[in-house]
């Protein structure tokens, strides 16, 4: 009999399609794995409402669990509590940085941060704080575009939500 821990373990194999260095557990996208009425329910929550990766993630989970021999399961999308970058694990943050994306700073739910001043963002390449935002909106809904003044390289910053 498969246990919930096994399913959590399986799900570490599902990568984030936009950022393949992190998996859906590290991203905090998988919220719950439960067994009820003869089937497993995997609850996932969208990062951004319109994140195109969500469809791919749902499909990837479905394919993987089928491959692992699960027959009765459902991948359910839940909205609450709303996803926040605070749920990304420290491991995910380190992987993001190594991949060249500056990780989001903690305490994102803070209203002052969203509406007020931007914090200093560290360049994922040379670690300098001498950086500035070029565009709040980047290649995906979750990223902003930054430039480092020390190494002169542009980079993505995973913005707080």
């Amino acid at each position: 009999m498969i246990q919930a821990e096994d399913i959590w373990q399986f799900l570490t194999e599902v990568e984030d399609p936009e950022i393949p260095v992190v998996n859906v557990i590290e991203m905090g996208i998988v919220r719950d794995v439960t067994y009820a009425q003869d089937k497993w329910v995997v609850s996932i929550t969208p990062t951004y409402s319109g994140c195109p990766a969500m469809h791919a993630i749902e499909q990837d989970i479905t394919e993987l669990l089928s491959e692992k021999g699960l027959q009765h399961f459902e991948v359910k999308t839940i909205l609450s509590p709303a996803w926040t970058t605070d749920w990304m694990t420290n491991e995910a943050r380190m992987k993001l940085e190594a991949y060249g994306i500056a990780p989001p700073q903690k305490g994102s739910s803070d209203k002052a941060l969203l509406m007020g001043k931007l914090r200093d963002v560290k360049c994922p390449r040379c670690k300098s704080y001498d950086t500035h935002m070029i565009s709040q909106f980047g290649s995906t809904a979750c990223k902003s575009l930054y430039k480092c003044e020390s190494c002169l390289e542009p980079f993505d910053y995973f913005k707080c939500i």
């Binding site: 951004y48 409402s49 609450s80 709303a82 969203l114 509406m115 709040q136 909106f137 939500i161």
Partner: peptide, 14 residues
């Protein structure tokens, strides 16, 4: 509302 408000705050700011 909780989910969407996070996004709309960015829209206002921009």
């Amino acid at each position: 509302a909780v989910k969407s408000l996070k996004e709309v705050k960015y829209h206002v700011q921009h």
